[in-house]
Amino acid sequence: MADRELTTLLSHLQRTPPPPYPQTTALLSRAKLLLLQLNALTPSPSTPAPLLALARSTYEQGALASIRAKNPDAFTRYVAQLRPFYELSSGVEAGEEESGERNKVTGLYLLLLLTQGLYGEFHSELEALSATRGQQLGEVEGDRYLGYPIRLERWLMEGSYDRVWKAMKKGEVPCEEFGVFSEILTSQIRSEIASSSERAYPSLPLASTKSLLFLESEGAVVEFARSRGWTVKDGQIYFPSAQETGEEEQEKEMSQMVIENTLGYARQLETIV
């Protein structure tokens, strides 16, 4: 009875185009209540397989819906809830086709970690991915959904921001949910580029800065320059140099450190001799 109702709910959720967010949340909370009745809210080895699949798809839909609604907290929660389901299923039905949304959700999660700058977690997740599923990393990279965040991370670390930029354009994104992150990523790489430009160039012409920062117009460049505290003069951008001021203080600090260290050694030596 309850499971049939759940199936209909799920088919509502999986409809394309997806229903608007408020409606989705209502459906989801009803689905979760049903899961609770069926005792399948959290998985256990004794849970029957079809029910497990149902619960899993419910959570997957929830995760995707929260991404569409740009709610990273809810998404992280769904991913955490999904994890035991994946662990439970990956060994038992190794040969069987995996749930279609798994790679998508994991890929989105990786991308989320990337945009939040949680590289440590990103790599832990990656390690788990390549080890737990008995796959070679090459295969993981080859996957449409999983390969995307992995490539992005590599380019970000290298500094090939132009490739990241290209990858975020319309046609390159594996599916629309991934596009949600583009905005965050763009502002992220823009500030990265800006901070490295400050150090790398003595000055920049306005015209080429536009392409450097992937901005639309020169007006946007001027606005961006102002927000970062750069000075614009005669079509050139000059970066404020923050270098010279701290020199004297550093010198002082250094000699103090030397004195402290030497005193420390003297005390230690005294205890030894």
């Binding site: 500094g159 132009d162 490739r163 901070s195 490295s196 150090r199 790398a200 003595p202 920049l204």
Partner: peptide, 23 residues
């Protein structure tokens, strides 16, 4: 372009001491 971004990042990370000339 990649090279330019990469070198700029290297300069910022303190890997090398250099400047870039965009023009």
């Amino acid at each position: 372009e990649s090279a330019e971004y990469i070198v700029a990042k290297a300069i910022r990370d303190g890997v090398i001491e250099a400047t870039l000339d965009r023009e």
